[in-house]
Nucleic acid binder design. Structure first.
Length: 484
RNA sequence: GGCCCCAUAGUCUAGCGGUCUAGGACGUCGCCCUCUCACGGCGAAAACAAGGGUUCAAGUCCCUUUGGGGUCACCA
């Protein structure tokens, strides 16, 4: 049976390395819609083969965020299914066995080169202005017996794919036939020296074993697709049908990134975007309904979906239209539903309970509470009233802006979001910059709260949450940067 | 830089050779509605990147150029 005649099975395969990304929701949407329309299955698989980048809380945030927007999966790490496990770190033995199979078939080989040698080869090629910077295939020459012996002796190695000469044609449903010259392609590492597979191996093995029929992923993957095709061929398996969706973009058309856009699904949630509005908006990115409809539900999209209506120009993820759609969705709610939505958003007791200890000493009457806590409920702040104070004495605005972004980088690199950590980071940060804590903290306070007086700064940030805090810091940095 | 993808207004898009003096939406601006502000209604400005072909006919097909993007890791 060819891949296209089997029951439809698609997957979203996020890597748990940080915040749940809008790009993940975007690609998940198209996978989901296609699966539902075809009466197929939508699978969630966690690609956690990079032990150094995996974050403990990230996987759960991905589950929560995807469910929040309204996309649920038929099989996955948390719901199980007949093709598990669905977490790649739990499938290590499977990949090792498949890598071995490739070695035995003469399709792959062990490479004992050190990182230093690889770097030296690369540097030499760079110096010689060689257009191909890949591995020089040095270890292809190692005899099988020697290779086995060295591996048995415990010598560190990776397993590489033998990329043959010739060309590979990728048949992409959205782009037609795309031809790649294999001379451009590196002998790809399949198994890392820690025994974990790379994306390429794990992805192909899992997609095959999980009987994935249609690979729907972002365009950034298209140039590694020939490697995947080669792997299917090496194993003697049928390829899935390839679909490379356009990439979501920043305003400047570059691939969407957290430096230039709020990219975490949690940001949109915290900023008061309704999940259906977000999903609807994502459906407008690269796809159109067919009539002039722009507001539609998930089931409507499932019914109307066709690949023929995908447009390949990378859509700029611009918030204006999302906000407009969100407004439409809000107006459509009944008073009761809207009240519930507000409660679910931030007017929850558990959220208020976090605010109370911060402001209780600062209010004289209950009616002081709301005016005292507005910035805990706002999205973006208006700095007009404090603009004059937004800075550091003796420091140029451009440097203040840069400094602020430096703090963002620090807090993003941290795993948790607690006030002690935020404070420790802030102290290290202003010391590194040579800024007085007194000045630096006032700057942060103004940015985060829009006021000169507030509850303890880092506790405020802790309660406000990562997304809103980070957004305000970036917005303020941009504002200050413009003055330079 | 090599390879690959893409190209209609500021943005999201419709357009799959003639019905395009290029349609819709967001945003912007104006007017109306109105006790205010929104909502809503009406209207305006705003685009086929350039140059070659093919064709009776090109936004639509082909080529080149330009522009943008992605990718070239023991990250995914």
């Amino acid at each position: 049976m060819t891949a296209s005649s089997r029951p439809v099975r698609v997957r979203i395969a996020p890597s748990p390395t940080g915040d749940p990304h809008v790009g993940t929701a975007y690609i998940a949407l198209f996978n989901y819609v296609f699966a539902k329309q075809q009466g197929g299955k939508f699978i969630l698989r966690i690609e956690d083969t990079d032990q150094s980048r995996a974050r403990a809380d990230s996987e759960q945030m991905i589950f929560d965020a995807l469910r929040w927007v309204g996309l649920s999966w038929d099989e996955g790490p948390d719901v199980g299914g007949p093709f598990g496990p669905y977490r790649q770190s739990e499938r290590k033995a499977i990949y090792a066995a498949h890598a071995q199979q490739l070695i035995d078939r003469g399709k792959a080989y062990r490479c004992f080169c050190t990182g230093e040698r690889l770097a030296a080869v690369r540097a030499a090629k760079l110096a010689a202005k060689d257009s191909f910077l890949g591995y020089d295939r040095h270890c292809r020459a190692v005899e099988r017996a020697e290779s086995d012996a060295r591996a048995a002796a415990g010598e560190a190695h990776v397993v590489r794919l033998i990329v043959p000469d010739g060309q590979v044609v990728v048949r992409d449903r959205l782009r037609g036939e795309v031809t790649f010259d294999l001379a451009q392609i590196d002998d790809q590492v399949l198994l890392k020296s820690d025994g974990m597979p790379t994306y390429h191996l794990a992805n192909v093995v899992d997609d095959h074993l999980m009987e994935i029929t249609h690979v729907i992923r972002a365009e950034e993957w298209i140039s590694s697709t020939p490697k995947h095709v080669l792997l299917y061929q090496a194993f003697g398996w049928d390829e899935p049908a390839w679909h490379h969706m356009p990439l979501l973009r920043n305003n400047d058309k570059s691939k969407i990134s957290k430096r230039k856009n709020p990219v975490s699904i949690n940001y949109y949630r915290d900023a008061g975007i309704l999940p259906h509005a977000l999903l609807n908006f994502l459906g407008l990115m690269g796809w159109s309904f067919g009539d002039d409809r722009e507001k539609f539900t998930l089931p409507e999209m499932v019914e109307a979906f066709t690949w023929d209506r995908i447009s390949l120009g990378g859509p700029v993820f611009a918030l204006d239209k999302l906000t407009w759609l969100n407004e439409k969705y809000i107006h459509e709610l009944s008073n009761d539903e809207l009240a519930d939505a507000l409660i679910a958003w931030r007017l929850r007791k558990d959220y208020l309970a976090q605010l109370v200890p911060l402001v209780r000493q600062r209010i004289k009457r209950l009616d002081d509470f709301v005016p005292a806590t507005t910035y805990f409920f706002a999205g973006d702040l208006d700095y007009a009233d404090v603009a004059a104070e937004l800075g550091i004495p003796e420091v140029a605005p451009a440097d203040v802006a840069k400094g602020l972004l430096g703090y963002v980088d620090r807090i993003e690199a941290r795993e948790g979001w607690d006030h002690a950590g935020l404070e420790a980071e802030a102290r290290a940060w202003c010391e590194a910059l040579g800024w007085k804590a007194k000045h630096a903290f006032m700057l942060l306070r103004l940015v985060v709260t829009g006021r000169k007086a507030s509850p303890p700064l880092f506790e405020t940030m802790a309660v406000l949450g990562k997304e809103l805090t980070r957004r305000r810091l970036r917005q303020a940095a941009e504002l200050i940067g413009k003055r330079a």
